[in-house]
Design a protein around this nucleic acid. Sequence first.
DNA 1: ACAATTGACATACGCCGCGTATGTCGCCAG
DNA 2: CTGGCGACATACGCGGCGTATGTCAATTGT
Lengths: 201, 201
Amino acid sequence: MVATRRAQMVEETRARLIRAARAAFATQGYAAASMDELTAEAGLTRGALYHHFGDKTGLMQAVVAQIDAEMATRLAEVRDRAPDAWQGLLDESVAYIEMALEPEIRRIMLLDGPAVLGDPSRWPSQNACLRTTTQTIQGLMDQGIVQRLDAEATARLLNGAALSAALWIAAAEDPPAVLAKSIQVFRNLATGLLRPAEGAG
Amino acid sequence: MVATRRAQMVEETRARLIRAARAAFATQGYAAASMDELTAEAGLTRGALYHHFGDKTGLMQAVVAQIDAEMATRLAEVRDRAPDAWQGLLDESVAYIEMALEPEIRRIMLLDGPAVLGDPSRWPSQNACLRTTTQTIQGLMDQGIVQRLDAEATARLLNGAALSAALWIAAAEDPPAVLAKSIQVFRNLATGLLRPAEGAG
DNA sequence: ACAATTGACATACGCCGCGTATGTCGCCAG
DNA sequence: CTGGCGACATACGCGGCGTATGTCAATTGT
């Protein structure tokens, strides 16, 4: 397989560019990041970048996809460690909030991403992360633990609440305290999804 | 009052620039909007813009502040029309979701705003809108209708859920249907905040 | 009433950054 | 061994932001 050797070189180049772009986008922001600088950081020039990714947004898309895949993996691990599905949902949400505190994720995925690539709903990658949550919720509904609602809508609103909490925490003076408050509220919100024991409402 | 006359001219100029900027930012996005074009649209040049707003982000800040003030007013009206505070909170949230469907608000406040000005938590204007919601919730807690939690955290998470719903709806093929689903889920989430009748959990 | 000053803009310039067009070099096919 | 293709580097143009400079009207002090 000599052709594979060639393809590996290409993958290596793409990986180097994406790595440099992640660092540049995370620290300077998408708009302020210079493609000359980040390609030089990767030991290449803008020629390689445009050859592989088309334009700056193409590079951003690749970066977003990579980070999103990592997030999905990490969230799945958290979910699988939980004793039951409901607890898994809660743990996963808390983990999501905590991940959103990481500067790279916050800046690229939460701040610049929507402005550059449009609504996250449209990102194919985001759907991967969200779809698993949706399935978890669907499972809880099928088990009769959670009320029958639209599973995707439920996943999205829970996700939005967690996201908002994360942004708030990241900007707070005392992040741990704000994190604790947020988790408390999040748990209560989620409780509203549970099927009432009986005769409630 | 001759000095007032002068000040009025200035206000008129600022208003014209902000109006043109709102249109340009809403239709083309912040990054793609050219300051030459939007100032020309206002019958002025970039000189006036830099004189009054310092730089492009200064103009964005002014635009965001204006829109946010309008949103706060509209939300207050909705809240005041409700028969009680709890219903007011729900109505206000639904109104927020619906407002986020307007292209101008969506593009400027939800997509570009965070990327340009940083976390919305930091915007002084956003706090105005959020503070009233926080007070509404605090009142509900004092009345014993809502569980005692951190009022600001509650307001922020509810807001985040609504925001997420709005972005989703705006990108959906069938917005009305998705809107209905979202409101349904939102109501359930909010119910989790209510004080349990008794002996629950 | 008049000169000096300040403020509200317009004009002109430089710099940077993106995108593209063009060139070069190595690898594989025939 | 040679022709073509893919993976880059290099060179160029265009547009946009920010700033420095200029101009004119309005205001103030006397």
